[in-house]
Structure formats: structure tokens, C-alpha cells
Design a protein around this nucleic acid. Structure first.
Lengths: 326, 326
DNA sequence: TATAGTCATAGATGATTATCTATGGGGTGG
DNA sequence: CCACCCCATAGATAATCATCTATGACTATA
């Protein structure tokens, strides 16, 4: 952009000057303006003088004891009003932004978490229509990569990465259960054990998956080795495969919880495997106010919507740890 | 939550800061901006810092070696663009105003002058559609009152008021002639003299009129006393009255010059009485650029449109006298 | 014409700004 | 791992700003 320095010394123009000038035009008196703005009359007089120098043209004249804007002064007054009100709009936007009622944040979800997060994000979005949330979804490994690159504001992991910079709040239990087809032959049998099922075919998620990793860790510690496995990349596909008698699987109870879906949970000793979802943020990262607001919202609704008072506590601590960042 | 009365320190906001910031966003580099604006890199860095303090929020962040505006920064950038371009529009307006191509001025005309001024104001208005001219009309006395009160930018008098502050440029001759009805019985008679006509009824303008005043002064110096007079307040009414055989009159030749109008000029010794119209301005008054432009325009067109080279000179001098006022 | 109110100007003084030079820290690409 | 950009910070300085108090000029109005 080419700047024409000729007509007006824009560089020296200050919003303060415009504020004072606008008030002078409104009151028609330097003294009045001085009082209203808690200044002395000479101060206002000098401000006017300087503004006139910036504009390069007289902007007010005396008329019947009042100060009246000249033709140029009127145009300048309109400009002032215009500019000041626009700056004010921006200021209000800033306030809204700081309150978290407006703006944007991004959250990265491990695949399985997408079965529960909507229950938090949905109502939050309803209550904060001006907030724009980007939801990233991937398996554990993909989310770890994003985390490494600081790509998102908040993450949800069942097993948070270990790092000094990490703040993690376990907010919701994520029980892993063994599921089989609706009319599975072992259904109802007492004393069923995993050892008895090791000959069955198990459908597993891909290696990067946390669900798979947790299950395999448990198998290892229990000294069990599976005979037959098959890899399927999504929880939903696994659920459908189980329903179709293709095998058994270990899934988050949240995946199978809702509605009749052709699968059933098998009561096995040692199950459900306990795990929890964590909100994970970097201690050092300055979260957008909207993200803070979301976490606050989560904290408030956890107890009632999910009956997870412990989660509420954990989120409260997380928020606390983030506050002094200011 | 703490409520901050002001989200942004608007008072300290400068257009300079916005200019610099806008350029930083465009180039994505402090160094580049520093070069473009002929500053050093630390200067730009500090400006950015100050702007951030004013806004109270980070406005840029590093990303792949570039500086990228944050969410708030983007909003601020838009604001900057907006404000700067508006200031620029005003600046352009100022330029136009100073060139006289835009704006307003007022001119006060003595009644008789309204017969010729349109021939100047008309074309000027055509050539400068953005200039808004207020034309005030009245008889000499009324115009003198306006002059005293500094109500107009320019005046047209045939006899300028005497005042140290007055600048007057005689720009056009205003011959006063004796007129009678079209078929007046003395028409064509050689050696006709005013002395012979003093028994006729003369139609005169009101006492404040300059035309009347000039005529009466001439009568006085010639030692002639009229027998019968009648007062009529407008030139036009007088012309019609003369055409209707109600008497004779002394009028500006400009009043009777155009078109067949039922009156004729009577050739009398001593006539036409010489007088001139003057543009009159106050030396001390700062004329709006538009008024200056009008006078310049008049100067340029006098010679060709009216064949009055002397008037051209006089107006040129007037303009000259006004110039150092800056 | 005296009085009060309103502006303008002068002089003084911290505070803030606009800049510069010098220097240090962090990445990026060889 | 080194050289090279790029940015941030420190320190310095002249200019400008934001203010104030004191005072003078001008203008209505009592």
C-alpha cells in the first residue's frame, strides 16, 4: 500500500486525540471536555492544537461563544466516531474472547474417545454458539504425533504421554470389556474365564491403538497367549464383526453401551480392565480462553451427566494448574 | 472472574503501530517490515511488543520460521486494515478539499450582481460538481450587514466598504444607463439631455440600493433635482414598469442587455455612469480552498467570457494578496 | 463598566515514544 | 556441528507527549 504523507500526518494520529476531539465537538467547550475527561482546560486546548497540526487544517472555530467544527472538522468528527466505534467493537470482541464465549480451540481425540466426547462437546456447543471447536480424531499413535507437534490445544488419551510438560486430568472411566455375539454359546455360563477363551479368535485394533495395547499388556501379565487374532482398524467395524460371529473382542464399554447392537458383554474375572480417559494439555501452552471455558464446563457437568465426582476433581485441579500461567 | 473495564488500552493506540503491524502480518517477518519501512529490526520488534501490551493478548506467533497472526491477531489485522483505509479516505478528502475541488463556500451578492454572476458560477459549478456554493442576495445595505458579521466568504459590491481589512478587485464594468419604454417619444432625438428629462417620472430602487445611490450622487453633482419619483424594490419590477410606460429609470446595462424586453437605453451625455463590480474579501479571513479555486476560475475566464482584461488583472492581484495568508 | 467565564499561550516536568547499536538465543540447512 | 537468518532484549538518547500551574486576552452579561 502506498502511503500519502501529504494531506494528513496519519502516523502521529492517536486514538486519544480523537477521543478528546470527539468530546469537544459534542460539548462545544474545552472546559466542559476538560472536566468530563478529568483534564485541565489547557491540556485539552493543546490536544486540539496538535490535532489541528496533524490534520493541517483548522478544525474548529468560535461561533457565538461555542466551539463549532469547521467543514473539515465535521468530516474529522465523523471519522473519529467511526474509528472509535470500530475500535470499541474490537475491544468488545476481545472481552468476549477472553471470557471464552467466543473464539476457537482444537481438541485431539483418540478414536475410542469419540464415543463419549460428543456428550460434552454437544451441550457446550449449544451453550456457546460463538465458539468454534475443531475435533481431530486418530488412534493413539497419530494423536501422540500431533501432541508432539503441539498441533492441538487439548487432547484426550486413556494413557497420557509421559512428559514433564504434561498436565493430565483423568475425568472419566473407560472400562474395557470382552464382547461376543448376542447369542454366544458361553452366555450365562458361570465361572467363565479368559483362559477358557484363548482358543477363540479375537478381533484386535491396529498396533497403535491404546485399547489393543492395554489388552495385550493384561494378557502378558496374565500369561495368556491368544491362538487366533485378526486386525480390524475401527471400533465400529469390530463391533459389527463380532455381531456377525467373526470372533470376540475387547472394547470400551462406551462403544457397546448404547442401543441393541448385536453384541453382549461377557462377564469375565479381571474384567472390565480399568482405564480412564484423561484430558491432556501442555503445562506451558497458553490455552485459548474458549478451551478454558470448555474445561470449566466439563468440570461442572461431569458430576451430574456422568456421575464422576473424581473426574470433576481432577479437571478442577487441571484448571487450577493452568491459571497461574497468566 | 475478574471483569476488566477495558479489554484494550485504546487510548495508547496509534495509527503508526497499526501501520507497522499490518505490514508485519503481510510480510510475515520483522526484518522485512523493518526494511520496507526504513526502520531497524529491533524497532519493529519493540513496536509489536507494545501493540501486544495494548491489546493485552499475543497477536503473533512463530510458525515454520514465519510470523503468523494468532486468532486475536487476525481480528486485529482486519481492524488495522479497516481503520487505516478509512483514515486514508479522509486524507484523500483533505487533499481534494485543499485543492478546492471539494467543499463549500458562500458568496454574497448585491441584487444587481445577480444578473452577471450566474455566468461565472454556472460554468464553475459544472466544472466542480463537488463544490457546494451558497449564494446570498440582498441590496447593498443588507450585504453590508452580512459583511460586518463575517457571514460569507466572498462579496460582490459595486462600491466596496471602506475598511483596512478589505481587499477589493474590480472585475467587471457595471455601466448604469437611463432606460425608457421601447417606443419612447424622445427616442432618436439628438442632443437629448438629462436636464430635459427631469420633469419625467423616475422609478428608483429602495434607499439601500447602490444603483440608486450612484444615480443620486450624480444628480447632486450635476445640480439636477428630479420632479417626480417612485420607489420600486427590484430591478426586474422596475424594468417591467418602464416597459409599461410608468416612467424612466437608471439601471445596470446588464439588467436590460439580454433579449427583447420592452425597454431601450437612452443615449444621454454623461451616461453610462461608470461603475464596477468588485469581488470583496477580508484580508484576514482564511478563504476555503473552494473559494480560492472559484476566484482562480474567474480570473481565467474573465478575459475570454467578458473581454475584461483589467478585471483579470485585479483578480490576479487579489489572489496574490490572499496567498501569503498561509 | 465590572465580573465571570472561556480560550490561548508560556513555561515546567515527568513519562512515554521512536529509534538506534550491540548482543544473545534459537532454528534451519548444509 | 557450524554458519547463517531471524527474532528478542538491553541500553542509550533525543524527541515528543501529557499534564500541570500561571497568566493574559477576549467576550458576553449583569
Amino acid at each position: 500500500m502506498i502511503i500519502y504523507g501529504v494531506a494528513m500526518k496519519v502516523r502521529q494520529l492517536t486514538f486519544r486525540l480523537l477521543q478528546v476531539y470527539a468530546d469537544v465537538v459534542r460539548t462545544g467547550s474545552l472546559t466542559a471536555t476538560a472536566n468530563r475527561l478529568h483534564l485541565t482546560q489547557p491540556t485539552v486546548s493543546q490536544q486540539l492544537k496538535r490535532l489541528r497540526e496533524i490534520v493541517g487544517e483548522p478544525i474548529v472555530r468560535h461561533e457565538e461563544g461555542r466551539l463549532v467544527p469547521t467543514e473539515v472538522g465535521q468530516a474529522l468528527y465523523q471519522l473519529s466516531q467511526d474509528l472509535l466505534s470500530r475500535a470499541d467493537v474490537f475491544s468488545q470482541y476481545l472481552e468476549e474472547y477472553n471470557r471464552g464465549g467466543r473464539g476457537h480451540f482444537s481438541i485431539g481425540l483418540v478414536n475410542t474417545a469419540q464415543y463419549v466426547l460428543p456428550r460434552l462437546l454437544g451441550p457446550f456447543g449449544q451453550a456457546n454458539p460463538q465458539v468454534d471447536v475443531t475435533v481431530e480424531i486418530g488412534n493413539r499413535q497419530q494423536m501422540l504425533n500431533r501432541f508432539e507437534r503441539h498441533e492441538d490445544d487439548i487432547y484426550v488419551f486413556s494413557h497420557p504421554p509421559i512428559d514433564d510438560d504434561v498436565l493430565a486430568a483423568p475425568f472419566l472411566s473407560n472400562p474395557l470389556v470382552v464382547v461376543g455375539p448376542q447369542h454366544y454359546r458361553w452366555a450365562g455360563v458361570e465361572g467363565l474365564s479368559m483362559d477358557a477363551l484363548k482358543e477363540e479368535r479375537f478381533l484386535l485394533r491396529e498396533p497403535g491403538s491404546a485399547t489393543r495395547h492395554t489388552f495385550e499388556a493384561w494378557l502378558y501379565s496374565a500369561g495368556i497367549e491368544l491362538r487366533s487374532t485378526q486386525q480390524i482398524a475401527s471400533n465400529e467395524a469390530i463391533r459389527l464383526a463380532v455381531a456377525s460371529n467373526m470372533g470376540l473382542a475387547v472394547l470400551s464399554r462406551h462403544v457397546v453401551a448404547d442401543s441393541p447392537n448385536g453384541v453382549q458383554e461377557l462377564p469375565l474375572p479381571g474384567f472390565p480392565l480399568k482405564s480412564r480417559w484423561h484430558f491432556v494439555v501442555r503445562r506451558q501452552r497458553r490455552l485459548p480462553p474458549a478451551a478454558i471455558r470448555f474445561l470449566s464446563y466439563v468440570q461442572a457437568s461431569l458430576a451430574q451427566a456422568f456421575d464422576e465426582p473424581e473426574g470433576e476433581m481432577a479437571v478442577a485441579e487441571l484448571l487450577q494448574a493452568l491459571k497461574p500461567e497468566r
